[in-house]
């Protein structure tokens, strides 16, 4: 197709762009710049020392690692949940569909308290798991469980509409052409849902990385073992060390931004590749 001059679809493009930019600035960029500016009130060596202390690195590693694991778990099981909800009709489907949103609506501290109650060694799931030698509450596993809990709706809600639009006949066609179930999934279904799935997983990951409310209850907050980075930031604030807290916050901001940017680029790349294929 030859590029040609063409009017934009939206009327008043200048106005809407201006509005978008100022909205994003006001709501996101200005507060975040505040974080970075406040971190600048400490010197560079202090900044480096506070974000690379052994304890901060351990906490950051746990936050990042647990968020990745939780996002991947949500990617697999969220897709499954979405699939079941879209493709099957069974009594109570609407109810389960509504339940998926609960982690969105629930205050995270309530989620944390509820999960801890259930998974603590005296709780009724914890009791069943204890003889198997599995302890969830107050371990890293507990952190992952909490992060998985809060991230589930992101994946389900991102994938669901795409699955609904997916034409069943394509699957039938693939099957009639001799594709196995796995081949149908791998070459027919996955390419069309992958962008949505990636979006969901990314959102779940981003949400998990910054989570505080639910994690502090279930993790036990032991330094080097179950301490997440957000707890360390709050600990700094408790000491009225705003600079130290914002130093860590801006490091988190930087790393999250890089990760989200990478995923977005990957997505764009996979879309382009999908379009070529």
């Amino acid at each position: 197709m030859r590029p040609r001059l063409r009017r934009h679809v939206l009327p008043g493009f200048g106005l809407s762009l201006g509005f978008t930019l100022s909205y994003v600035c006001l709501l996101i960029l200005i507060p975040l710049t505040g974080v970075v500016l406040r971190a600048r009130s400490i010197t560079w060596p202090e900044f480096v020392a506070s974000v690379t202390s052994e304890r901060a690195l351990a906490a950051f590693g746990l936050s990042l690692g647990a968020a990745v694991v939780a996002a991947v778990v949500n990617g697999v099981f969220g897709l499954l949940v979405a699939w079941v909800l879209v493709r099957y009709r069974f009594p109570g489907r609407r109810l389960i569909d509504a339940c998926v949103d609960l982690p969105f609506a629930l205050p995270t501290s309530v989620a944390g308290i509820a999960l801890t109650t259930v998974y603590s060694p005296a709780g009724w799931l914890g009791q069943q798991l204890a003889p198997l030698g599995i302890q969830v509450a107050f371990t890293r596993l507990g952190v992952i469980v909490a992060l998985t809990f809060i991230g589930l709706p992101f994946v389900v809600r991102a994938v669901q509409p795409v699955l609904e639009d997916l034409d069943r006949e394509i699957e039938d066609a693939a099957a009639s052409l001799g594709a196995t179930r796995w081949q149908t999934f791998r070459h027919v279904l996955l390419p069309s849902i992958l962008p949505a799935l990636l979006t969901g997983v990314t959102l779940a990951f981003a949400r998990a990385l910054g989570e505080y409310g639910s994690v502090v209850f279930i993790s036990g907050n032991l330094p080097f073992r179950t301490e997440v980075i957000t707890l360390l930031i709050v600990a700094r604030l408790e000491q009225f060390d705003y600079a130290g807290a914002t130093a860590m916050a801006s490091m988190m901001l930087g790393v999250s931004f890089l990760i989200l940017l990478t995923i977005n680029l990957l997505q764009a790349w996979s879309r382009r590749r999908g379009a070529l294929a």
């Binding site: 109650t117 005296a122 509450a137 107050f138 502090v216 036990g220 907050n221 032991l222």
Partner: peptide, 21 residues
């Protein structure tokens, strides 16, 4: 000897009383 370092006093009380830890 501390297995759980709760973030606040009430949370610690809950851990001890409700969770039996």
């Amino acid at each position: 000897n501390v297995p759980v370092l709760d973030s606040g006093a009430r949370a610690a009380t809950t851990t001890f009383v409700q969770r039996g830890i």
